[in-house]
Structure formats: structure tokens, C-alpha cells
């Protein structure tokens, strides 16, 4: 591999030339013959119309093929996720609100290791969701369901990928640019294709959450594993730990604080994405903001905005305090000693 490195630049140059040639030959606006370019230099003024790489038609063709050929595949995903979402949402909506409230508070209580401060804060936030406007209760449930499903998808796919990246330098080098891409593409660029692939509703939002929120989780899992003290990992190896024993017994437990940090970030980003996704018709607390803006009702938009903040606080407190507890368990900093 290393031997051929010096030819890489040449290959890049060739590819570039081929692209320019393709752009020129496929363009409708190209001059009658190439020789004109060398006599009439006006094309050096404004960007010439023929110097246009036909990416758009190519992508469209590719997209059509994707839908036609793999439609069944996306249909399947859609069916599965939508089913999951509907079941979960219906279950929670049907639950009497005080019961659901108590469940959330109990979750906060145990996740924070019976920390009363966190629990009271979460209880306050949960109550105010409905208290701000009764409509918000069910909408927050919808939003929560989407966030939770999106998160689960991120965990199930993101953590194993993070592990693979930490283990294998080649995998990391291959995936890092993809993660960069996922993080730099504006979200609307995949929200809209999401609709084409999965139809309107919750599923494109889940898809968007995945694209948007999985990179930090992957990165932090990878980083967490690589940051584990080298000599500790060597010790495991020196005593003959297999790859699996090393991963589950040493690397993952010690990377857990970082992974939890990743999960927390992932949650927050998921929530942000659900709100944006209301613009493509995903139902939830986000469309209250949209509605408010459309009706120029500042109060309404702000009120919904506050509800989103409260929801964010609930998510953040629960995952954060759980993460802190994990960290303590790994590093054994006794609360009382502090």
C-alpha cells in the first residue's frame, strides 16, 4: 500500500482531468469546437457555462435507482420504525398523565442515584410541560418517542462502529471523512431526501436524527477507548486476554464515562433535530413553535420554546447524572470523601 503512495497525486490529477473532460463533453453550452477556446478568451471572464460538472443529473439518476431497486428495503425500515413509534406513542399517550409523570420522576430518581436535587428539578420540569399548555403533554410524548427511537438507533449502530474505529486504524481513516461529511452537510439536505425515502412523518425525522447525532457518539466511543491508559491495556494483553475479554473487561468499562458523554450529546442533538424536523411535517412539540411563527404569535412560539427547553433539561439531567454515576463507579470517587 505504502509503496504506491507516490502515485496518488498522479491519480488525483487524472481523475480531475477526466471530470473536466466529462463536464465539457456532456454540457449543452459547450462551444462548437475546442479550438475556439484558444482564440476567443471571453470564457475567462465569467465562469463559463460549459464548465459544469453534471453532479445533479447523476445524483438524481442514482436516487431514482435507489428508490426503484431498494424501495422494499426502505419500505421495511419505514414499516418497522413507524410501527415501533406508533406503538410506543399510543401506549404513553393512553397512560394517565399522573402515572407517566411519576414514572419519569422515578427514572430520574434512580438514574441520579437517589439524588433529590436532580429529581425535584426533573419533577418540576415534567409538571410544567403540561402546565404551560395541556396540548403540550401529548406533543411532548411524540417528540420524546422520536428522540428515544432515534437514540436507540444511534446506540445500536454508533457504539459498535466507534469500537471498530478504535481497534482498527484503517477503519478510522475510512470513516472519519464520512463523519465529517455527516456533520457538515446542512440538515435540510438530508431531511428532504429522507421524505422521499421514508415518506412524511416520524421516520424521516428518525433518519435525520441518526445522521445528525450519531457522529459525536461514534467519535466519543472511539476516543474513549483509545484514551484508556496504554499500560492497562497492555497488562490485559500480557496476561493473555482475548480481544473480547480485553474489550468487555477493560476497554469498555474504562471508556464508559466518555461513552456516556457521547450519549448525552447524542440526546441533546436528537432533540434539536426533532424540532427542526417539524418543518418537514413531523408532529411534536416543534410544530407549536412553527405554528406560532406562522401566525406571528410570538407568545405562542416562545411558550413552545420554553417547553422544548424543559424537555431538554429533563433529557440532559437524566442522562448526565447517570453518566456521572458511571464515572464514579469506574473511578471510585466516593461522594462522601469529597
Amino acid at each position: 500500500m505504502g509503496k504506491y503512495k507516490k502515485y496518488f497525486n498522479l491519480i488525483y490529477l487524472l481523475v480531475f482531468i477526466v471530470m473536466v473532460v466529462v463536464a465539457y463533453t456532456t454540457s449543452k453550452y459547450r462551444p462548437e469546437s475546442v479550438s475556439i477556446l484558444f482564440t476567443d478568451f471571453s470564457w475567462l471572464g465569467n465562469w463559463p457555462k460549459w464548465l459544469d460538472f453534471p453532479l445533479m443529473p447523476f445524483l438524481n439518476k442514482w436516487f431514482d435507482i435507489l428508490i426503484v431497486k431498494y424501495g422494499i428495503f426502505f419500505e421495511g425500515i419505514n414499516f418497522f420504525l413507524l410501527g415501533l413509534y406508533t406503538k410506543m406513542k399510543n401506549f404513553l399517550v393512553d397512560l394517565p398523565w399522573p402515572l407517566l409523570m411519576i414514572l419519569v420522576i422515578a427514572l430520574a430518581f434512580f438514574a441520579s442515584g437517589r439524588n433529590t436535587g436532580t429529581t425535584i428539578m426533573v419533577a418540576f420540569c415534567v409538571f410544567f410541560l403540561g402546565f404551560l399548555s395541556p396540548r403540550y403533554w401529548d406533543k411532548c410524548i411524540m417528540t420524546t418517542c422520536i428522540v428515544v427511537i432515534g437514540m436507540l438507533l444511534c446506540l445500536v449502530i454508533g457504539i459498535p462502529i466507534g469500537i471498530m474505529m478504535a481497534r482498527n486504524k484503517k477503519v478510522r481513516n475510512a470513516l472519519l471523512p464520512i463523519l465529517d461529511l455527516m456533520q457538515t452537510i446542512p440538515s435540510f439536505c438530508y431531511l428532504i431526501p429522507g421524505i422521499l425515502l421514508f415518506g412524511l412523518g416520524a421516520v424521516p425525522a428518525i433518519f435525520a436524527i441518526f445522521v445528525y447525532a450519531v457522529p459525536p457518539l461514534i467519535r466519543l466511543t472511539d476516543l474513549g477507548i483509545r484514551l484508556v491508559d496504554k499500560e492497562v491495556v497492555e497488562a490485559a494483553e500480557a496476561f493473555g486476554a482475548s480481544k473480547k475479554q480485553k474489550l468487555w473487561g477493560v476497554q469498555l468499562p474504562l471508556a464508559l464515562p466518555n461513552i456516556m458523554q457521547g450519549i448525552n450529546q447524542c440526546t441533546m442533538m436528537s432533540l434539536a433535530m426533532v424540532v427542526i424536523a417539524s418543518m418537514i411535517g413531523t408532529r411534536g412539540i416543534g410544530d407549536e413553535v412553527l405554528l406560532g411563527l406562522q401566525q406571528l404569535n410570538v407568545g405562542m412560539a416562545t411558550e413552545a420554546g420554553i417547553a422544548i427547553v424543559l424537555l431538554a433539561i429533563i433529557f440532559d439531567r437524566i442522562t448526565q447524572s447517570y453518566g456521572e454515576r458511571m464515572q464514579e463507579r469506574v473511578h471510585h470517587i466516593k461522594k462522601k470523601l469529597k
Binding site: A235, A236, F239, G240, V250
Partner: peptide
């Protein structure tokens, strides 16, 4: 073979007895 490390290389998430038994655990 077994090895003692310069900077100890102990597992911070395991107790002393779990650390000492690690070689046997992986066996």
C-alpha cells in the same frame, strides 16, 4: 509468562483481589 509493569498497569475499575486474579480470570 507473566509481567509486572513499571507504572503498575492495574485495572482501576477492579478491586485488589480482582486485579490479582485477573490472569486466572482470563484463563
Amino acid at each position: 509468562m507473566s509481567m509486572v509493569f513499571q507504572r503498575f498497569g492495574l485495572f482501576p475499575h477492579k478491586t485488589v483481589i480482582q486485579n490479582v486474579g485477573y490472569g486466572l480470570e482470563v484463563q
